[in-house]
Amino acid sequence: MDPAPQSVEHSLVMQRIGLRYGRGPEVLSGVDLALPPGSFTFLTGQSGAGKSTLLKLAYLALKPSRGLIGLFGRDVAVMNNAELQVLRRRIGVVLQDFRLIDHLSVFENVALPLRVAGRERSSYVTDVTELLQWVGLGHRMNALPPTLSGGEKQRCAIARAVISKPDLLIADEPTGNVDPVIGERLLRLFAEMNRMGATVLIATHDLALIEEFPARTLHLENGKIRERR
């Protein structure tokens, strides 16, 4: 029997993770990963290497075929739905395709995690407004996502991911659709979140960006992870 995730202090632990879709070959094979709290980590790898799949496992959108996942010191395999819901609220996710809700305004999209958590509108209006101003969307709060540019959508998605001050922030190619200046600014936002205590895991293939923000870098290749300096 596999041991329980070893470290209660780690934000994310993966032990001997394997994943296959249906009867196909393993996309991930024996992946081990540990993110200490407050760490900042880049995940690199070629397209199709399984970066997005690994992130899906980390933010609980997929179940592994084998192995153990621990979040904030708890084995997710033994947690019930209610516990997983609470756990998801501690994770902020920025997806490659943004997943903004088209009929909701920028403000409502960003406020969504707070609404889900049951907070009253009056208690979060100021927080959301300030954050939107910080990411440069103060003048677009009532705009609908289809009217936003790629960069604006990206910033809106990032604002939604960080509004609830998550303990773990996971981003899949967060700078993929923006110009280098905005990309750098967004990365500064992640760094600021990290400085405030959040653990950050960013999947990217933008090596130039990694060079500008030196941090621990993991490389995913052939379904396995190796440390890269």
Partner: peptide, 15 residues
């Protein structure tokens, strides 16, 4: 500079 917000939250599901 920020825009004026509506008083009520929008419905999460589209009508």
């Amino acid at each position: 500079m920020s825009e004026r917000l509506p008083e009520q939250s929008q419905p999460i599901l589209p009508s």
